[in-house]
Structure formats: C-alpha cells, structure tokens
C-alpha cells in the first residue's frame, strides 16, 4: 500500500472502531420497577385442584433479623389474602381445618457494588504483576449501593404439617417469590408488592 493509502486506512479503522464501540452497549438506566421479578415454584406431582380452604398465618416472618423493617407487612398479608380468595378458596375457621397453610416472609439486604470500565479491568491485570496491591478504583469508576427486597409466599399441605413438629420442617408445595430494588417511595413499593403478588397467582394457572 502507498503511504497515503496506509495513513487513510489506519485513520478509517480508528474512526470506525471508536464510533462502533462508543455505542456498543445499550444503557441500562431503566425505571426501578423494571428490575422486579416474580418467580413461582411448584411441586409437579402435587394435586392443587383439591384445595378449597386455606389458613394464612397473619404474621410475616423476618428470620432472625434485629429490628426488621415491617412497613409493608400488612400490605403483603392483605394482598396474599385477596389473591387466595380470588381463587375461590375460603379462609378456614382454624389451621387444623384448612387444606393448606400459607406463610409469608421478607428478606431485606443491602448490596454494595463497584462498577468500573473494561479499561480498568485490563489495567488491573497489567499492574497485578507488581509485588504490591493495585487498586483500579483509585482511577475512576462508580461505587453504588442499593437495597434489595424479597417477599416469599409459601404454601404447605396442612396434612403434611405434623402437630408436634415446627412448620419450618415441612416442604412447601408452592412458593411465590417477588424480588426487586427497594430504594423507592413507600407508595410505589406498596403498588409493586400488589402487582407482584397478583402476578404470582396469575402465572400459577394450575392453582
């Protein structure tokens, strides 16, 4: 290639690569509720068609967490009860008379993470050969945190719950899980819980 062409060639390659890579990955700056997921798990061998009564434990579990956030407990119980009734199931007079026992629990976690560009990644590997620790984040990047909340709804067959055994040893035959970011206004969280609980039952067409 002639010198002139060679220059032009490298300039063109450089321009094309810069233009392409500058827009290579679409931005994920999306509304917070778009990160919500609803997952339901079920025992394929269980006959859900015979269920007509339920017993909903009206206390939401928070595990062994000290000072748990209980702001949305009542909303969870209300929405789960509403969804169970929409299946034409009725609330039993006592737990011993119900076909299923329903128990709700909540897990809140704070997530701390660090985002850095691939450039920093390569930089880190390069300098990793030196006998001292190298911290790529001193050159840029973003540290961010968010709170993640998970609501778990579990259904247990009442007949499988022995009276002399704590309920937590019983296998759930159905479980619904809502998961999402909870850095949001309380009213929005309430709305997202409602939508999520409804979706749990909507996608469980076998109930």
């Amino acid at each position: 290639m002639e010198k002139q062409s060679l220059k032009f060639f490298f300039l063109f390659v450089f321009s094309l690569v810069v233009c392409s890579f500058s827009g290579c990955y679409p931005n994920n700056d999306e509304p917070i509720e778009e990160y919500d997921i609803v997952a339901t798990f079920y025992d394929q061998n269980h006959d859900f068609s015979k269920i007509s009564t339920f017993w909903l434990i009206d206390t939401v579990g928070h595990g062994n967490v000290k000072n748990p956030k209980k702001n949305h407990d009542q909303t969870i119980i209300t929405e789960v009860r509403r969804s169970l009734e929409s299946l034409t199931w009725t609330s039993a007079e006592s737990d011993t008379e119900a076909d299923i026992i329903v128990f709700c629990s909540v897990i809140n976690t704070d997530v701390y993470t660090y985002w850095y560009d691939y450039w920093y990644d390569w930089w880190w590997y390069w300098y990793g050969y030196y006998p001292y620790p190298y911290y790529p984040w001193s050159y840029g990047g973003i540290t961010y945190s968010y709170s993640e909340g998970t609501v778990i709804i579990q259904m247990m067959d009442r007949k499988e719950v022995p009276q002399d055994t704590p309920p937590n040893t019983v296998v759930a035959r159905w479980a619904g899980i809502l998961n999402g970011v909870t850095n949001d206004a309380p009213a929005n969280i309430e709305r997202r819980i409602k939508t999520g609980v409804e979706q749990c039952f909507k996608q469980s067409t076998y109930l």
Binding site: A39, T40, D43
Partner: peptide
C-alpha cells in the same frame, strides 16, 4: 417444568 419466572429481560 416446576417453575415460572416473570420480569423484564435485557
């Protein structure tokens, strides 16, 4: 089989 998941996907 055994589970269903709903959400936005990227």
């Amino acid at each position: 089989p055994g589970y269903d998941i709903t959400g936005h996907q990227w």
